[in-house]
């Protein structure tokens, strides 16, 4: 951030004082110093136990680039029994950017999630991770609107990453084997170029294995770029099945072969 560190700490201190005065000392002061933090807590975490946690890392570019999806990567390491990951952008509240329900049966201590956002302004971006003990573990970072330097902004409006090659919506995907029996799944949903404007919102994406067991469920929010690449780490190397539903009740599916066999 451009604000000097001293100013930041002054703001934090001032906020902490204000919070105590208002009798809301149980809300932890926001390390990102967002003016919307109180509203975020009220909307998503009322009466919940919260902690800012280094084990939840949010990675994203320093700034939004005009006309481009902003890539985001969430990495959770060393947290047991993760039930839900809720991604929030303060500036696009209310609502979540994305909800991710991982395979709660797996003893996964490490989880990753990659996606793209259509952001137009500076915002704190947060990942809140709910563990089985009812605690939300929160990590985040600021994305600045003040992007650029030489060559900003984009001179031509870029094609949406998944701009259609065919007429029917489809799913492109691939899996990579990862250590410890994991696989990394990447996929993107292709909208036909002619239909991009009128394309219905994606309401849910589910990933299941060949035995029909649910491995992951994603519920996109309004600023998610549905045509950007999704990245998930799955605690299995079995073949997977991707099932996408949209707001018109349409369903797109495809299978992704075993990551073990895809290994060159």
């Amino acid at each position: 951030m451009r604000a000097g560190t001293g100013l930041l700490w002054l703001c934090l201190f001032g906020y902490a004082l204000g919070a105590q005065a208002a009798g809301t000392a149980s809300i932890p002061a926001d390390p990102l110093d967002s003016s919307r933090w109180r509203y975020i807590v009220a909307e998503h975490f009322r009466d919940a136990r919260l902690m800012f946690d280094e084990r939840v890392q949010v990675r994203a570019p320093d700034a939004v680039e005009d006309g481009r999806a902003t890539p985001v990567f969430v990495r959770i390491s060393g947290l047991d029994d993760v039930r839900r990951i809720r991604v929030l952008a303060d500036a696009v509240a209310p609502g979540a950017v994305l909800d991710y329900f991982p395979d709660s049966g797996a003893a996964a201590r490490d989880l990753s999630l990659g996606f793209g956002l259509r952001l137009a302004q500076a915002t704190p971006l947060r990942a809140a991770v709910l563990t089985g003990d009812g605690v939300w573990h929160i990590g985040g970072r600021w994305i600045d609107a003040q992007g650029g330097g030489c060559a900003a902004p984009s001179m031509t409006l870029p094609e949406s990453a998944g701009a259609g090659k065919g007429l029917a919506p489809g799913i492109e995907a691939r899996a990579w084997p990862r250590p410890a029996g994991y696989q990394r799944l990447k996929f993107r949903i292709q909208a036909p170029a002619s239909a991009r404007e009128s394309w219905p919102a994606i309401t849910q994406i589910t990933i299941s294995d060949s035995a029909g067991r649910l491995r992951a469920r994603l519920v996109p929010g309004k600023t998610l770029d549905p045509t950007a690449v999704f990245t998930l780490d799955i605690a299995s190397r079995e073949p997977l099945h991707i099932d996408v539903r949209d707001a018109r009740g349409q369903r797109y599916e495809r299978g992704v072969g075993s990551a073990a066999r895809a290994l060159p």
């Binding site: 999806a69 890539p71 995907a173 691939r174 990447k186």
Partner: peptide, 21 residues
């Protein structure tokens, strides 16, 4: 690293997309 990160934002989607089928 801001400029490197901008390069990834602009140039990576096409390379990444080409790995998918």
């Amino acid at each position: 690293p801001a400029e490197y990160r901008r390069s990834v934002t602009y140039l990576y989607p096409a390379l990444e997309g080409a790995t998918l089928k």
